[in-house]
Computed example of a mutant assay.
Amino acid sequence: MTAVGASPALTPAPPAAPAPDAGAATRSGLRFQDVTVAYHGTTVLDGFTLEVAPGEVVALLGPSGSGKTTALRTAAGFTTPLRGRVHIGGRDVTDLPPYRRGIGMVVQQYALFPHLRVEQNVAFGLKAHRTPRAEIPGRVARALEMTGMGGYARRYPRELSGGQQQRVAIARALAIRPDVLLLDEPLSALDAQLRSGMLAELARLHRELPHVSILYVTHDQLEALTLADRIAVMKDARLVDCDTPRRLYRRPGDTFTAAFVGQANLLPVAVEWHDGSVSLAGAALRGAPAAGLAPGDEAVLCIRPHLVRLGAVGGRNALAGTVADIQWRGAGHRLLVDLDTGPRLTADLGELRVPPLPGERVTLCFDPEDAVVLPAAGEDGADG
């Protein structure tokens, strides 16, 4: 973590989905307005426009090098945009230094001072902000209680677990009472069990901080789906999609979003009719059609693995194939099936009493409403 002041592109992308209260977001919260950042002639953030409303969590999700952390650093004031503006709390802060922006920041390395006790680490940001001395003990105590670290005030960082250190980092960011909280992959250094617990804690803090805008950078899909009110999908320095987790998961706008927000089967198909009828090497299938597709177009049928099931021959959206592999995953089985029509299909099923064996013939099926027909990669630029 770091409370700021403590320790240490582009054809325009589709417009970002509006914040829950777009009017309020222009008066407060966090707003990027056509922000472009370049390093040594290379554009690393291109025409970035996004609003985070008060009380909202927006996750920036994308592969390494997509511009996520650059956007966060620009909001924090550590990076100066080539063009565009940044607004926090209704103020244009583009030209303000970090300590005058009213933000808290948490990074993955925690950035705690090893020679200072927990309470001193949390107080550091308050002192940097010139908080009246009489207020500091109460603010420190409150921040530690909010993060469940009230009983650890006198300990040193070396006496804490990784999860506890991250809580202290968050407490230091919250102690300054920021308008905006910036989280840069804060859980990436934790093991799976600690990460799950911290996700729950962050969700609780989100509920307790109704006026704080939170921008959360992550490459972990589960974190984004669990915590965010909206997910902004980044690719090649651009914002390519932005919507609620459920809508992005159920109805992705393109094949890149479909593949990056949760796992997906992406089957190459040809559009037969406007109603979502498609063919896969002669097999007739149905899905929910995307706008703009016409008969004869090449397309992609997107279906999530957990929505595929074993089915009888002759069922709707039925595909026959041979089991290439089967994996037991505790709560169920994952089948990898080489379809007779060509591609491989992944199916996540409940635990099977008598699972099929590699080499065995099976038929898989799915409901038309659970599949989405998308433009083929490259047609809309999403996967070019």
Rank of each mutant, 00 (worst) to 15 (best):
A3H: 13
T11W: 04
A19C: 07
A22Q: 12
A24L: 15
S28G: 13
L30Q: 02
R31P: 03
Q33K: 14
V35I: 08
V37D: 07
V44I: 11
D46Y: 06
A53H: 08
P54A: 11
P54R: 08
E56P: 11
V58S: 03
A59Y: 03
L60D: 08
P63T: 08
S64T: 05
S66G: 04
A71W: 03
L72T: 01
L72S: 03
A75T: 00
A76R: 01
V86P: 02
V93D: 01
L96V: 12
L96M: 14
I103W: 05
V106M: 07
L112C: 00
E119G: 05
F124S: 00
R133Y: 03
G138I: 00
R139H: 05
V140T: 02
V140W: 00
A143Y: 07
A143S: 06
G151E: 14
Y152A: 11
A153E: 04
Y156P: 07
A169H: 03
R172L: 00
A175D: 06
R177V: 06
P186R: 05
P186G: 06
A189Q: 13
A200T: 14
A203F: 01
R207T: 10
S213M: 09
L215I: 04
Y216M: 09
H219V: 00
L222Y: 07
E223I: 00
I231A: 09
R238G: 14
R238H: 11
P252T: 11
P252V: 04
D254L: 08
A259N: 12
A264M: 14
A284K: 14
R286S: 13
R286Q: 14
A290I: 04
A299H: 07
L307D: 15
R309I: 08
L310Y: 10
V313P: 08
V313F: 06
G314N: 09
G315I: 03
T322P: 10
R329N: 10
L335P: 02
D338W: 00
T346P: 08
T346V: 15
V354L: 15
P358F: 04
R361V: 08
E369I: 12
V372K: 13
V373A: 05
V373D: 09
A376V: 12
D383Q: 11
G384S: 13
